[in-house]
C-alpha cells in the first residue's frame, strides 16, 4: 500500500538569504555602531551603580509613578546593575545576529549505540573480571561482604540519632495546669471575666511562674483564644458547658489541622477561621468543624475563676493540641 502512495518530499535546506549587513557595508557599519552603543550604555549603567553606591543616601526617597515613593539608593543600584548587565547581553546578541556569519550549518549525528563487538567485548571483560575475583565460586566472601556493607549503612542512621530527643509525651502536654491563670498576649496581665464584654476576644497564654521564661515552643502549644458570648448562645453538652465561665469559652489557638494560629473570629456568626487552609470552626458548638480540611474541633480549655476573681484553667487540656500525629489516640 505504501508503495503506491507517494509522500511529499523534503526540498532540503533552503538557500541562504543574505542579510543587509552581509551585502551593504553601510548597514554593517550601522550594526557595529548599534552594538557599540549598547556596550556604551552598559558602561553608563555601571557608572549609575557606582554613583548610587557612593553618593545616594539610603534615607532618600523619590516618587516614581507605578512604584510610588521609592528608596532612591536601592533603585539606583538596581537599575544601574540591570542596565549594565542587560546591555552587555543585548549588544552581544545583536553582534552575533547581524555581524557574525548566519549561514546555518549541518552537522551529522553519530550513533550512541556501541558496536556489537564492543558490547560483546565489554560483557566478556566484566565476566572475566568477576571470574578472576572468584565472586561466584566463593559464596562465603560474597555473603559476608553483603552483610558488612548492609550493616555499615546503619552508621549514618545511628549517628543521626542525636539530632533530637524522642518525642515521649511531649506532643501530649502543654503548660496548662489546674489553676494556671490566663494572661494577655502580649502584656502578661491576668484577666477577670468582667474585663471581657460580650463579643470580645482575648489572645492569652498561661501565666509564668516567677523566674520562668516563655519560649516559642511553649507558645506553639499554649496559645489560647478567649471568646465571650451570651451564655444562651452556646449549644454545648453539660460537661463542655461547665468548661465555660459566664459565657467565656477558651480554645487552643493552634489549629487541629496543621498548627497555624486560628484566631480569626467572626463575632456575628461565631465562627473561627484558620487563614492558612480555611478550616472553619463553630464556637457555639465547641469548635466543631463546619468547613475546610480540619478533621477535629479545636481542643477546649476548661476555665473558671480563682479566689481573686481571675480566669484560670480548671484542668490541663484533656487532649493533645495542634496537628494530628500517629500516637494520638482520638
Amino acid at each position: 500500500m505504501s508503495n503506491e502512495i507517494e509522500q511529499i518530499k523534503d526540498p532540503g535546506l533552503p538557500a541562504h538569504v543574505h542579510r543587509q549587513t552581509d551585502t551593504d557595508p553601510k548597514a554593517a557599519a550601522r550594526a557595529e555602531r548599534q552594538v557599540a552603543i549598547l556596550f556604551g550604555l552598559s558602561a553608563i549603567g555601571t557608572l549609575l551603580l557606582i554613583y548610587s553606591y557612593i553618593f545616594i543616601k539610603d534615607s532618600s526617597f523619590i516618587f516614581i509613578p507605578v512604584l510610588g515613593e521609592t528608596n532612591t539608593q536601592q533603585l539606583g543600584l538596581g537599575l544601574g546593575m540591570a542596565i549594565a548587565l542587560f546591555c552587555i547581553g543585548a549588544g552581544a546578541i545583536h553582534w552575533a545576529k547581524t555581524l557574525m556569519p548566519d549561514e546555518e550549518v549541518i552537522a551529522q549525528r553519530h550513533e550512541f549505540r556501541s558496536e556489537d563487538e564492543d558490547r560483546a567485548e565489554f560483557v566478556k571483560t566484566v565476566k572475566a573480571g568477576a571470574a578472576a575475583a572468584g565472586l561466584g565460586r566463593r559464596p562465603l566472601i560474597k555473603r559476608t561482604l553483603g552483610a558488612a556493607l548492609g550493616l555499615s549503612a546503619l552508621t549514618p542512621l545511628l549517628l543521626l540519632r542525636d539530632l533530637g530527643p524522642l518525642p515521649k509525651d511531649d506532643l501530649h502536654k502543654t503548660s496548662w495546669k489546674a489553676g494556671t491563670r490566663l494572661v494577655t498576649d502580649p502584656g502578661d496581665r491576668p484577666i477577670r471575666p468582667e474585663d471581657l464584654e460580650v463579643g470580645a476576644v482575648a489572645q492569652t497564654l498561661p501565666e509564668l511562674a516567677p523566674g520562668e521564661e516563655r519560649t516559642l515552643n511553649n507558645i506553639g502549644k499554649d496559645a489560647v483564644l478567649l471568646i465571650r458570648l451570651r451564655p444562651e448562645e452556646f449549644n454545648l453538652d453539660a460537661e463542655r458547658l461547665s468548661w465555660t465561665h459566664e459565657g467565656i469559652i477558651a480554645f487552643s489557638k493552634i489549629c487541629s489541622h496543621m498548627g497555624c494560629a486560628v484566631a480569626l473570629y467572626e463575632q456575628q456568626t461565631k465562627h473561627l477561621l484558620c487563614p492558612c487552609h480555611q478550616s472553619t470552626f463553630d464556637v457555639t458548638r465547641a469548635a466543631k468543624v463546619i468547613f475546610g480540611p480540619a478533621a477535629r474541633p479545636l481542643p477546649q480549655l476548661a476555665i473558671t475563676v480563682d479566689a481573686d476573681g481571675y480566669l484560670v484553667a480548671q484542668q490541663p487540656f484533656t487532649e493533645p493540641v495542634g496537628p494530628s500525629f500517629w500516637e494520638r489516640s482520638s
Binding site: 512604584l67 538596581g78 548587565l85 542587560f86 547581553g89 543585548a90 552575533a96 545576529k97 556569519p101 548566519d102
Partner: peptide, 25 residues
C-alpha cells in the same frame, strides 16, 4: 564558535539584567 557562544553568553547577561531589574523595581 562564535555565534552560539555570543548568543548564549549574551543571554546570560540578559537573564541577569532582567532579574536585577525586577530586584530594583
Amino acid at each position: 564558535m562564535p555565534v552560539y557562544m555570543a548568543k548564549a553568553g549574551g543571554f546570560f547577561f540578559i537573564v541577569f539584567g532582567v532579574t536585577a531589574f525586577l530586584g530594583a523595581v
